Amino acid sequence: MARLVAALAGLFLVFGGLATAQEPVFQTSASHAVIMDYETGEILFSKNGDQPMPPSSMSKLMTALMVFEALEAGTLSLDDELPVSVRAWREGGAASGGSTMFLDVNSRARVDDLLRGIIVQSGNDACIVVAEALGGSEEAFADMMTRRARELGLETASFRNSTGLTAEGHEVSAEDLARLAAHIIRNHPQFYDLYSETSFSYNGITQANRNPLLGVVDGADGLKTGYTSEAGYGLTASAERNGERRIIVFNGTQSMRERANEAERLMRAAFADFIMADLAAPGEELGSADVHMGTARTVALRTTGPVRVAMHRRERDRMRAEIVYDGPLIAPVSEGDQVARLVVSMPDGRTREYPLEAGSDVRRQGMVSRAMSALVNLVSG
């Protein structure tokens, strides 16, 4: 059996240029960046998107998710009042120099307020309060965060605290942050509106939501900024337009202004420049494969599902598609057997594979016919 490439029946009418590695058609100044299509989960653009990075306060997406799940499980209620420990006040308060909700030491705060403190104000003190309430300690809660993230398939996620403050081994990839954002949007819509609140007041102090897209880009409705001196300025954000939703994640910009500019550019590009191209419908015949010792010499190959490819609009005519299979196939072949795959190669070197199935049955030849086929093959070499 050899690896064979079959001719495509019709897809070259749609695309078919050579897909040699080239300079990306879209670039960003961020060190890590991802654009995701929410509906399909497809990555439309990635720059180091699969590489773990320090997520700073974007970690609080996971912290908030743990609270959402506790509320839905009934182990917490929005009216519960949680104690503010000395540690939460000291390490998360104004004296620490980080983002804070300005909780008073030894006071109690409602979960409803703490959620807004985490989401709108990025309060480190609010994070530690809920961590101690749910996990017994922040360290135990961070372990809970990591376990839950892995259960959700976020394989790069490792949390060392609830806040995102710099800690060795505290990391997650931009792609996994995008998946986490999609999970929150899809599974916790009753809480997602919190991410679009533009300000929140607590203890007589009003703080604005730091998300630079809210009120600036149409349809923007979340999620979370981040900053540490190690990570730079980052953002996980989402917007919805005309029934389509995109999620962007980036990190490593050098200032709040650069973060705001890059956020707007990435989100506008997410809708204007990147598409999910439908290349073939489910059950569409794309080519054929050779069959050995069968009652037919070839069998049609068809898709098992939709062939959708994430791309920049300018990449469509520069990709390559080919049908690959180990062949010739040996009869008998049954209709529906997955016998080949469609390999789509993008100009930047990315590839996607889609299974192809036999479009019909091909019976095995009788003994005499098989003997004649063997003789013909021997003579022809």
Results as ranks from 00 to 15, higher is better:
A2T: 13
R3E: 15
V5G: 00
A7C: 01
L8A: 02
L8E: 03
L8Y: 05
A9V: 01
L18W: 08
P24C: 08
V25R: 10
Q27H: 06
A33L: 05
V34M: 02
I43H: 00
L44R: 02
L44H: 07
D50S: 15
M53L: 11
S56V: 07
S57Y: 04
M58A: 07
M58I: 11
L61I: 03
L61K: 06
A64Q: 02
L76K: 07
S77T: 15
S77I: 04
L78F: 12
D79E: 14
D79N: 12
D80A: 13
D80E: 11
P83A: 05
V84I: 12
V86K: 15
R87F: 10
A88Q: 06
G93W: 03
A95I: 14
G97H: 08
G98C: 02
T100E: 11
D104I: 05
R108W: 11
R108C: 01
R110Q: 12
D113M: 02
L115Q: 01
G117Q: 03
V120F: 08
D125Y: 02
I128R: 05
I128G: 04
V129M: 06
V129R: 07
G135C: 10
G136R: 03
E138W: 07
M145N: 07
T156R: 11
T156E: 11
S158R: 14
F159P: 04
R160V: 03
N161A: 00
N161R: 09
T166L: 04
A167C: 01
E175I: 14
D176F: 08
R179M: 07
H183G: 06
N187R: 11
N187L: 00
N187M: 00
Q190R: 13
Y192H: 14
S196K: 15
T198Q: 14
T206V: 01
N209E: 04
R210L: 09
L213K: 08
L214R: 03
L214I: 12
G215D: 01
D218V: 11
G219L: 02
G222E: 09
T225M: 06
T236A: 15
A239V: 08
R241D: 07
N242K: 14
R245C: 05
I247V: 12
Q254A: 11
M256Y: 00
R257H: 02
E258T: 12
R259G: 05
N261D: 14
N261C: 00
A263P: 08
M276T: 11
G283M: 03
G283T: 08
E285I: 14
E285W: 00
S288F: 07
S288Q: 15
A289Q: 05
G294R: 02
A300L: 11
V307T: 02
V309R: 05
M311Y: 00
H312W: 05
R314W: 10
R316I: 13
R318Q: 14
I323W: 09
Y325H: 09
D326T: 13
P332F: 08
E335Y: 03
G336W: 07
Q338V: 15
A340F: 06
S345L: 09
S345P: 03
R350C: 01
R350W: 07
A358S: 11
S360T: 10
G366R: 12
M367K: 10
L375N: 04
V376R: 15
V379F: 14
